[in-house]
Amino acid sequence: MSDEVKKFLYVNRKAPYGSIYALESLEVVLIGAAFEQEVSLAFLDDGVFQLTKGQDTKEIGVKNFSPTYRALGDYDVTKLYVEEESLKERGLGIDDLQYLTYEDEDDDYKEKPSIKVVSRKEMADIMAEQDIILSF
């Protein structure tokens, strides 16, 4: 394999728990993090629901994997793009999402936010910059 670093974008467009997509995506991201590529995550359409805070799955008998998004920083996954229009269309705002952070090794391990809200137009630009797009 070449040692060239590629830009990977994981595109998340489905709400968690209704299907296996969200969890599968998260697991692939965690496994893929070992390959030290340039990884970012996109959340649009119903995918924005993956990041909401206050998820409680006790009554549906499924594991709540929302705390795992908070571990992404440890795995050097520090760029999570959330589409503003998708949030708005669903009556959501940034305050409905978990506050996710990472420690910036190049900046004295300062804690910085991982989530960046972007417009639909910016999301399209981000998609067009990638080498590899993985859709979930």
Binding site: V11, K14, Y21, I133, S135, F136
Partner: peptide
């Protein structure tokens, strides 16, 4: 095309 994107 440079890349393929599936809209699942």
């Amino acid at each position: 095309n440079e890349r393929t994107q599936s809209w699942l």
